[in-house]
């Protein structure tokens, strides 16, 4: 594996329903550490499946995929890998409704050996970086869509992951809030030198990443470097 590459994917294939649906049909991709990538394509093109493969949420049928030095085709339980290397941001924030903002951000840390006090300090630090210090004791139901997504970003960052995977992070937000969230993600990516991979169907969002990958029918049809990034 090239030292600069944090992700290397070779001829990755994934089918569903006994091979009837080819979700991924021979994906080849290399992503450098600290790069920002957008994966764009129509619904059912395989972009979310690709994201799930990178995030070790799903396993490919064939091919090779190495992420942050881990061969994801070899290991069975990848929970610890996700905990240490990946930060997920979902389209629907997916926060736990009965927990406060501060508690939601701490949920990944429960799986670690970090002491309670340190856990809280780290969560507060991250919440400060996403400007939610004044909302730490609120329940998610009391927050706006943008605030919820900022909490979800804070949760994704609390373990200091090397890769942030964002699946339609602005898909459920209005355009103004979308811009704020996108700026926040890109800002964190730059400041923390975190590799950012976003799945989106919005071209203007995709264009904000350093590189865009167009996926169709489980294959990468086009790659381009975005000048605006």
């Amino acid at each position: 594996m090239n030292n600069e590459n944090i992700i290397e994917i070779k001829d990755l294939k994934k089918t569903y329903e006994n091979g009837v649906i080819k979700a991924l049909d021979g994906i080849n991709l290399e992503i450098k550490k600290g790069e920002s990538i957008s994966i764009i394509g129509p619904s059912g093109s395989g972009k979310s499946t690709l994201l799930n493969m990178i995030g070790a949420l799903d396993k490919a049928d064939e091919g090779h995929i190495t992420v942050a030095g881990m061969d994801l085709m070899q290991k069975e339980d990848l929970s610890k890998f996700r905990l240490n290397e990946i930060g997920f941001v979902f389209q629907l924030h997916n926060l736990i409704p009965n927990l406060t903002v501060l508690e939601n951000v701490q949920t990944p840390l429960i799986e670690t050996d970090i002491p309670d006090k340190k856990m809280e300090e780290r969560a507060l630090e991250i919440l400060k970086s996403v400007n939610l210090t004044d909302k730490i004791n609120q329940k998610p139901t009391k927050l706006s869509g943008g605030e919820r997504q900022r909490v979800a970003i804070a949760r994704a960052l609390v373990n200091h992951p090397s890769i942030i995977l964002a699946d339609e992070p602005t898909g459920a937000l209005d355009s103004k809030t979308s811009d704020i969230i996108l700026e926040l993600l890109l800002d964190i990516h730059k400041k923390e030198n975190v590799t950012l991979i976003m799945v989106t169907h919005e071209h203007n969002v995709a264009a904000r990443a350093h590189r865009s990958i167009y996926v169709l029918d489980g294959k990468i049809k086009e790659e381009k470097i975005n000048s605006a990034s």
Partner: peptide, 16 residues
């Protein structure tokens, strides 16, 4: 179910 999926995604083990 969805919440459990999220917890698995953020690194919780099956045992947890």
């Amino acid at each position: 179910t969805r919440e459990i999926g999220v917890l698995r995604a953020i690194g919780w083990t099956q045992r947890r």
